[in-house]
Design a protein around this nucleic acid. Structure first.
Lengths: 171, 171
DNA sequence: GACCATACCGTCTATTCTGGACGATGCAAG
DNA sequence: CTTGCATCGTCCAGAATAGACGGTATGGTC
């Protein structure tokens, strides 16, 4: 019940469980993989440890299957709901970081041509994936999730512009 | 001399030291803060541990002041130079992640107005900083570094577009 | 109804990274 | 000479990562 530090990952878990009503860590993994994981990925193992941690802190309610796999299913407690609401109500001012390996290589003087080609390939693929997702899901997705997806699309387009420019004026 | 896993941070340290010729971790911290740290930040403590690790691996040469602060100064060895070159020659295909706390809050249903305002403020500030840096340094910066800065600027502009749109069509 | 392949699911370990406290040294102004 | 600030380095607890490993359920096939 003691309240440990809540990290972005904590809120991710709380938020995902709020969306789902209740879920096992394994299910969270699947939800995350095709949504929030696209811009904030985490290790699957962490979903297990984080859920447990949040349960210990009284923010999640845990109950476990009797037989078989003994799956743990989690749901929000009132305290969990409150913590999530409180976090949402305090707009973040922090900025993300690009953390692009390709950009790092460029920064340290890698050859532009091959690097641009490699990155264009990857970003092109990712953009196509996002666009397909958007076409399929845009009108039933909650607005925040749709907007997040659109942010992802916009940044992928920006990366394509960028690497195209890098690749063009090189040899 | 055994070669441990080299991480992006390893190459960052190697690259920074290559730029500087030789440097103490404390100096690296200063270099990083105003350049590569803008898109791939690390803890200052890690510069000390990573330098030591790389020295143990034979990629850096370490020598220590006799008196006073007993600063350690590092320089690339041949092996270090080679490792860096090898890394640069293998173009990364990985993609970065947005990892924006604000986007996370939006995803999970935070109110758009206040969030957009907070983010616009932060991104506006950052963009101004980048633009000033670009104006001051664009023509003497190595090309890769200049391009990285321009990537940062472009993405900040994209964020501003995005959060403006989010803030506009809200209540 | 034994078997096998394959999906489903959870845990574990080693290592790295983060956040931030803490403390020491050096320098300059009063 | 002492006080205050910048410089500089170390340390620790806890969070996160990478990925190996192992167990459980399911549904064919022979």
């Amino acid at each position: 019940m003691s309240v440990p530090r809540l990290t972005p990952v904590s809120y991710m878990v709380l938020g995902l469980i709020e969306n789902a009503g209740e879920a096992t860590p394994y299910q969270l993994k699947a939800f995350a993989a095709q949504s929030v994981g696209n811009f904030w990925s985490i290790q699957h193992a962490q979903l297990y440890t984080e859920s447990e941690r949040l349960a210990k802190a009284g923010l999640l309610d845990e109950h476990r299957e009797e037989g078989g796999r003994r799956r743990r299913t989690y749901a929000l407690t009132e305290a969990g709901r409150a913590a999530l609401a409180e976090w949402r109500a305090a707009p973040a001012t922090e900025l993300g970081e690009l953390r692009s390996l390709g950009l790092l290589q460029l920064f340290f003087g890698a050859e532009k041509g091959p690097l641009a080609r490699a990155q264009l390939e990857s970003h092109g693929r990712k953009l196509a994936e996002y666009e397909q997702l958007h076409a399929a899901a845009a009108d039933w997705l909650p607005e925040g999730q749709r907007l997040a997806l659109e942010a992802g699309i916009a940044h992928e387009r920006e990366w394509l512009r960028f690497w195209r420019a890098v690749g063009d004026n090189q040899s």
